[in-house]
Each structure stands twice: as structure tokens, then as C-alpha cells.
Amino acid sequence: MPFINYAQREITCKLVYYGPGLGGKTTNLQWIYEQTNADARGKMVSLATESDRTLFFDLLPLTLGTIHGFKVRFQLYTVPGQIFYEASRKLIVKGADGVAFVADSQEARYEANLESLRVLHANLEEHGLSFAEMPYVLQLNKRDLPTALPAAVLTRALQCKGEPVFEAVAPRGIGVFETLKGLIKLSLSRLRTETTVAR
């Protein structure tokens, strides 16, 4: 459930871009940052190494508007793909209200996608979060590369629970906003479902 602050009249959703190293998670956030009006976005925080690999995380705050007087804010995070940054990855997954799995379509990264997916399940489980209940979308990135596997093959291997699948070429923005919009819809719909159920 998102963070609901009655005093500030704010709902904050933490959305996490998860996936194998160098799969394009940061590129997704960079595109969103560049294409979003300055009044809707906060500063993008990027903690990258010299080789452009994400060390801790990237963070992009977005404020899209209000719903019934509640300001709706999103915090978009990426996790470091590298296996040795387990501590920061766990922290980010811990408070997630939605996850977009950014898969690398290249054949050589097939196993890395599966391994990353396996670790995602483990990270969620560690925090007592249910993958089945987590708002979740799958993005097949790098569709423009000649080494990309067919989307149907990747979907068969990586789709876990009938989640929406988006094909993307993140550096050119293809599929980037579609992925974000899909994830936001699922995350906010979940809040509605929870509210309705609670009533």
C-alpha cells in the first residue's frame, strides 16, 4: 500500500525498476526525466560508478497531479543490477508499491534475466511481500538490437502472472512511458481495490 499522509494530503507510491545489470533501467528513468515538464518532476538522483553502472540507486520523484485533493506523488527507483549490491537492492524493494521488470532482450542476457527474476522473488519474500499481489509489469528492452530474442520467446520465459508486457527501446523512448503508465495504473488501482475491500 502506498504511503498515505493525511496531514499533507499526499499519496506517495514507490515504483521500482528491477532487472539485470546494464539492462536499461537507468535509461528508462533518464528518458522520463528528459521528457517530463520541470513542474512535474523533482531532481533526478543518480549514484553511478565511472562505468555508468548504478551503485546505490537512481531516484526520480514525479508529481502528476491530485485526486480528490490528495497530491499523488511517485518515486521512481532503479536498483543496481549487479549481484554484489544486495543491500541497497533489498532496501529499495522493501517499500515497493509496484515493480517494472526491465529485461534485456539480447540472447546473451537470457540467463541473467532469469537470475534477476529469481532474486526479485527472493527479495520480495524476504520482506514478506507477495509477488502475486504486487503490481507488476514486464518490459522487454533493447528490441532494436540484432541479437534480441523474439518477444514471444522472452514473454514465455519471463512472464510470471499474466502481467502486461511492453516492448521497448529505452534510449529512444519507445515503450518507456507505456511501461510507466501501465505500472502507475496497476499501483493506483490496487489502492482502490484495497480501499474498497477495506470498506
Binding site: 517530463t36 493506483l188 488501482s189 482502490r192
Partner: peptide, 25 residues
């Protein structure tokens, strides 16, 4: 989370509300 009445202050979010958030962005 568990108590029905306590959540009454949370806005009822419709599909239209969600679409409006995106606007032309």
C-alpha cells in the same frame, strides 16, 4: 489495513481519475 472504517478518508479512485493524472504528459 484491517479496519474498514479507518480508511474512509482515502479517496475513491476511479479509472477516469487515473487517466486524468496523465493528461497530455
Amino acid at each position: 489495513e484491517a479496519n474498514a472504517s479507518a480508511r474512509l478518508g482515502v479517496p475513491e479512485i476511479t479509472d477516469e481519475d487515473i487517466d486524468n493524472l496523465f493528461g497530455d504528459r
